[in-house]
Amino acid sequence: MDNFAFFRPTSVAEAIDLASGDQKRDFLAGGTTMVDLMKLAVQRPGGLVDITGIKELESYEIGPGRLRFGALARMAVVADDADLREACPALTEALWKAASPQLRNVARLGGNILQRTRCPYFRDTAYTQCNKRDPGSGCAALEGGVTSLHAILGGSEHCVAMYPGDWAQALIAFDAEVRTRGPGGSRTIPFADLHVLPGDSPEVETILEKGEIIISIEVPVVPAMRASHYLKARDRESYAFASASAAVGLELDGETVKDARIALGGVASVPWRAGAAEEVLRGRTFSEALAREAGRAAFADATPLEHSAYKIPLGADVVAGALMTAHARARAGAKGED
């Protein structure tokens, strides 16, 4: 790890000032991604701006019409919130199924949604071909590498690295927004627009500008949240990234699907909303056969690589399984209201 300068601001304005301009400085929150990448020499900032002293960013609110999460709220604290678990089970489940208890106690929500890929060719500098780490160098995964952990949706001829997070799937499924502040002022970004497809520039991962900091993540409350579920298939039950995952939510009118939300993880280059699968469900009578049809529709446009074709049937089963659990929760909620 290279030597670096360290700063610990106590206000958002001070943090933005320290991270702006020509200095090669990055924000540090929980550090569970940044420190790893610095040890590996994948990221080599000249300075770190530790924002954990900005206490105003730690709060969160579970309101009747909107959920608001400060960027520095801890994953473990939010995951254990009983009100959130009732309001939107998928949001708490996605947090509980991410990382280890030790990491969840340290990691912050804003950093979690910005975590970088676990592609082995990106994280191991012994591989010189990585367009995400070194633009124009090539892609070792696409040039004869092992691709079982790579994206089958949203990749490009320059990069097929997979977005590794869990919580982002629940956020994109329920139309979250990100509030930011930077040198150019404040803005609100639809979560669906935050991450950038690799295209010709895999090194550009979000639309955030230099010095721009996430203030909060906000989610409008909709009925489908109460009957939601996050299902994650992985090599082992804990502390493993998804081979395929799904965050889903259902709103029923009797047995007719009034609203459906489906987002996919472990299979795409960015958090992925499965709009075509949602349309399969809306307005139709729910059944296991319909859930499986939606699962297949979610992967109709998938482009598997040599070692990643297994993700298509696995992902379809995960979507169907998540929908079945959400349906059961919707029916249980309906009975509770009778």
Rank of each mutant, 00 (worst) to 15 (best):
4 F>P: 00
6 F>K: 06
11 S>V: 05
14 E>M: 08
16 I>Y: 01
18 L>C: 05
21 G>H: 11
25 R>C: 07
25 R>V: 08
30 G>N: 11
31 G>E: 05
34 M>V: 14
38 M>A: 09
38 M>K: 05
48 L>Q: 06
48 L>F: 09
51 I>H: 05
55 K>F: 07
60 Y>F: 15
62 I>R: 08
63 G>F: 05
66 R>P: 02
67 L>E: 02
68 R>F: 05
72 L>F: 13
73 A>C: 12
76 A>W: 07
77 V>A: 13
77 V>F: 01
85 R>Y: 03
86 E>S: 14
88 C>M: 15
94 A>V: 02
94 A>R: 00
97 K>F: 04
97 K>M: 08
108 R>L: 03
116 R>F: 00
124 D>A: 10
129 Q>S: 14
132 K>D: 10
145 G>H: 09
157 E>V: 12
158 H>P: 00
159 C>G: 11
160 V>G: 02
162 M>R: 13
164 P>R: 08
174 F>D: 03
177 E>S: 09
183 P>Y: 11
190 P>G: 10
193 D>H: 14
193 D>M: 10
197 L>F: 13
210 K>Q: 14
215 I>G: 02
219 V>Q: 11
222 V>D: 03
222 V>E: 13
223 P>Y: 12
226 R>S: 10
227 A>T: 01
229 H>E: 04
233 A>S: 13
248 V>K: 00
250 L>H: 07
250 L>E: 06
251 E>D: 15
258 K>E: 07
264 L>R: 07
269 S>G: 08
287 S>E: 13
288 E>M: 11
290 L>D: 06
291 A>R: 03
292 R>N: 08
294 A>E: 04
302 A>W: 06
304 P>D: 08
306 E>D: 15
307 H>I: 10
311 K>F: 09
314 L>K: 09
315 G>M: 02
327 H>E: 13
328 A>H: 12
329 R>M: 13
330 A>W: 02
331 R>A: 12
